[in-house]
């Protein structure tokens, strides 16, 4: 097997030990569990598989999940860019606190975020009444799913754009400004071309995370069939019916989708990193 043959002569010790531990762990924890899913779905046959994953209720859940994740990621694209910008370019009182606050959605357990958001955006909560005034019901509707997804994926765009913005040489902007370019021209012609690969990466990561989010959503979604069920929840529904095969089929769809996204993001990042470093 071609795997794990060192290309360069090794100077440091520990290759065998660290390879052994890593491969053992990856096989046991990450790869072995997939065999159960493969066997379960292989058993059910193509016809049944197709029937399960195109069931109208499941298809409705794809639509809800994809739409909500898309809107939540676009929201984070705007909000994340703004946050990255003010954290890098301006000095103001409380900046460190604001910077720490950005990581809160990663630190806060999703179930805790879920129960807090659902109570806040319910009609009786602090925000529910406000939105009700404009005729928008957030909690227990697809809008609530978007809020939960947006909340849990806030850090992605900020944390991918921030370092790129920090490394951006200010001289280019100054030169453009000396030559008479306006602020918005400089932003579109100089800043945006430099940050957009990171910006897109951040939104793609936020999107991937939103597709898989569960804990925060089930509290606020209301989980009405055909209306506000996300695909992760459909696995649960099938499990409660003791239909392990159907649960596996839906899981296989989610797994394939997220692996495709993960690979695309990695390839995308590698391409731009090479270009940046001129390799």
């Amino acid at each position: 097997m071609a795997f794990a043959i060192p290309i360069r002569k090794r100077v440091l010790p520990g290759f065998g030990l660290s390879l052994g531990i890593s491969l053992f762990f990856v096989s046991l924890v990450l790869l072995l569990p997939v065999t159960g899913l493969v066997m379960q779905t292989a058993d059910m046959g193509w016809g049944r598989f197709w029937q399960v994953v195109t069931d109208p209720r499941v298809v409705a859940s794809y639509k809800v999940t994809l739409t909500a994740a898309l809107i939540a990621s676009l929201f984070n694209g705007v909000f994340g860019l703004l946050m990255a910008w003010i954290l890098v370019r301006y000095d103001f009182w409380g900046k460190r606190l604001l910077d720490g606050l950005v990581d809160l959605p990663f630190a806060l357990p999703t179930a805790v975020a879920g129960i807090a958001l659902s109570a806040l955006y319910a009609q009786s909560g602090w925000y529910g009444g406000f939105f009700e005034f404009f005729g928008v019901q957030v909690a227990y509707t697809p809008v609530g799913i978007m809020v939960a997804m947006a909340f849990t994926s806030v850090p992605f765009v900020v944390r991918t754009v921030q370092p790129v913005l920090e490394d951006l040489p200010l001289e280019d902007e100054e030169a453009a400004s000396t030559l008479g370019a306006s602020g918005s021209q400089i932003f579109r012609r100089i800043v945006l071309p430099a940050i957009w690969p990171a910006w897109v990466t951040g939104m793609a990561l936020a999107f991937t995370r939103s597709l898989g989010e569960f804990g925060a959503i089930i509290f606020i979604a209301g989980n009405m069939p055909y209306v506000s069920e996300v695909t992760s929840l459909m696995i649960f529904v099938r499990l409660q019916e003791y239909d392990y095969a159907a649960a596996s089929a839906i899981a296989a769809v989610i797994l394939l989708a997220s692996l495709t996204l993960l690979l695309s993001i990695n390839i995308w990042q590698a391409r731009f990193l090479r270009r940046l470093h001129g390799r």
Binding site: L30, L32, L37, M39, G212, I235, Y244
Partner: peptide
């Protein structure tokens, strides 16, 4: 990176099936 990309519900199910 798989555990970060995969829905935790799918992760739970993988273990349940095995």
């Amino acid at each position: 990176d798989i555990p970060f990309a995969v829905s935790p519900v799918v992760a739970g199910l993988l273990y349940l099936l095995l």
